[in-house]
């Protein structure tokens, strides 16, 4: 797998951390931060663990801190996956 899509991310978030009442992940969520989406740091840790496992990739902890919205998170992961494919 060389690309993490928004649908992938939403599926994994739901599996790892559920979905807050009043939040619709299928809505316009790309630029909402994790807190606004009802996810705490542990939810993102669990989600990241599963992505690292399924995509066989190690994410950078500092980069993770900055990836605080789905758009930024996807960009960070996909940049890493693209670099790996190119290598």
């Amino acid at each position: 797998m060389d690309r993490l899509t928004l649908d992938d991310l939403k599926r994994i978030l739901r599996e790892c951390a559920g979905e807050d009442e009043g939040i619709d992940l299928d809505g316009d969520v790309l630029d909402l931060n994790w807190f606004e989406l009802g996810y705490d740091s542990l939810a993102i840790l669990q989600t990241t663990g599963l992505i690292e496992r399924d995509f066989d990739v190690m994410l950078d902890e500092e980069a993770l801190d900055d990836a605080d919205t789905p758009r930024r998170y996807l960009a960070m992961v996909n940049e890493l996956l693209a670099a790996r494919t190119a290598a």
Partner: peptide
């Protein structure tokens, strides 16, 4: 239990 709490 909410879906947020089920996995944990």
């Amino acid at each position: 239990v909410s879906s947020r709490l089920l996995p944990q």
